[in-house]
Design a protein around this nucleic acid. Structure first.
Lengths: 240, 240
DNA sequence: CGTTCACTTGAAAGTGTTCAATTACTGTGG
DNA sequence: CCACAGTAATTGAACACTTTCAAGTGAACG
């Protein structure tokens, strides 16, 4: 049996758009929320969900698949700012500027739920709890970004990759899967870009982990052989 | 005449708490907003505005002075996540967890405006525009953090310091000052930590900039001699 | 006036990058 | 279904930048 992709659409009722829409106060009229959620879209690998400079109209909740977001610098440099799976809400950074500020690209066939912001605002005037949920989601995003700052500012190559793999693994678990084996939907070069490393370094660290008996690596198929060791590396503990 | 500190309290009516409270819809009852703003506090250099794990009760708008925020890792490592001056709203990352998730330390005598979150929520139910302003502020914070990711992930030491100095310079300008000379309220080691560099590297780059005729450096007193050159370095243009 | 802490500077070492070459995939058309 | 082309990934060697370690200078404060 081939390992399930980390990102194949799966039921994920405890996160994402559900988090945003269905966990509001008990006695709210849910049918009204349904109108937010119903607008579904599917995009193929390589397609853009939105691009830098596009007029901001909607936020998106990922239902299944995976999306990468990346920032374009003036000088042409690119920084991958995140990989996102089922449950993630994208496009929140566009609220200030009324334009999207990054590229959101599907890494594989991906289903999203499109939420028109005007509609959202309208509804949230009636349902204060919805606003609060949104604040929470954004607050969480700020927190997550900070962890990444720590990673980029303080960690070695090995620590970065270990941390990254664990976060992929945890994301997978959160969506209900439990296998130690999964498939990465992004390229080595995307991973490197995200972690502030070159492709070569990423590749070398993968090889090193494999030699150390921590990982099994077969191209995009990753299996975690020794979670504890991986955690130890991620935490910077210098012991095996 | 000694150069004015970048962070001495100054009138800053176009940003921060004003942004949050006074730029809401025209016909709102402003007196009600005043109750949000009135709760003022002053803290001394080294004092904490809040600490990791503290119960979340209020957000803070800086009125004058400067604050550094830093993240504590399990293994004791510290990551400075930002330096904040007049206008900045702090504590937003605490909304999800109901606890503050970082340390906020005054770098000098600093005045803040304490806004109780419960009070804010209450008011924002009546004034939807207030909620929207908050979304915008948080959205902006997400954007800012992303720039930092680019800095940490892609830039060389010189680019980092140049970018940092320009952002300090711009922050100063936004608050009304216009001098090319200012004083840094944070230590070299804080700067290094923030930029993902060691103290030694920061010091060396400062020296190099001085030798290049880009900066004048006298301990904490910085004067920008050649802004264009500094911008060129920050943008990664390899020409002087 | 001396102790302390912050900052600077130098030399050696290390980690990741760059450049270059090879191998492994992927997808397309014959 | 295979061959081919093009891209992705791996590996090696030389190099560069930043770090680390160590020493020295300077400013602040009792």
């Amino acid at each position: 049996m081939p390992p399930r992709s980390a990102y194949t659409p799966i039921a994920c009722t405890n996160c994402g758009i559900y988090q945003l829409c269905y966990s509001v106060g008990g006695d709210t009229d849910l049918s009204v929320l349904d109108t937010l959620v119903k607008n579904r879209k599917t995009i193929k690998r390589g397609d853009f969900l939105y691009r830098t400079g596009d007029q901001f109209r909607a936020i998106y909740a990922i239902r299944g698949g995976s999306v990468k977001t990346s920032l374009l610098a003036n000088d042409g440099r690119v920084q991958v700012t995140g990989f996102h799976v089922a449950g993630k809400v994208l496009g929140l950074d566009a609220i200030v500027t009324s334009q999207y500020n990054c590229e959101a690209t599907a890494l594989e066939t991906t289903g999203v739920c499109e939420i028109h912001f005007s509609r959202f605002e309208e509804l949230s005037k009636k349902i204060p709890d919805l606003q609060y949920k949104m604040l929470k989601i954004m607050s969480q995003e700020i927190l997550d970004n900070r962890e990444l700052m720590m990673l980029l500012g303080k960690m070695s190559g090995e620590e970065r990759l270990a941390t990254y793999l664990l976060s992929m693994f945890n994301g997978l678990k959160k969506c209900g899967a439990s296998s130690m084996q999964f498939s990465l939907s992004m390229s080595r070069s995307d991973i490197g870009n995200y972690l502030g490393l070159t492709v070569e370094t990423v590749s070398r660290v993968f090889s090193r982990f494999q030699k150390m008996g921590v990982l099994g690596v077969d191209n995009k198929e990753i299996s975690i052989v020794d979670v504890e060791a991986l955690r130890a590396v991620a935490d910077g503990s210098e012991n095996a």
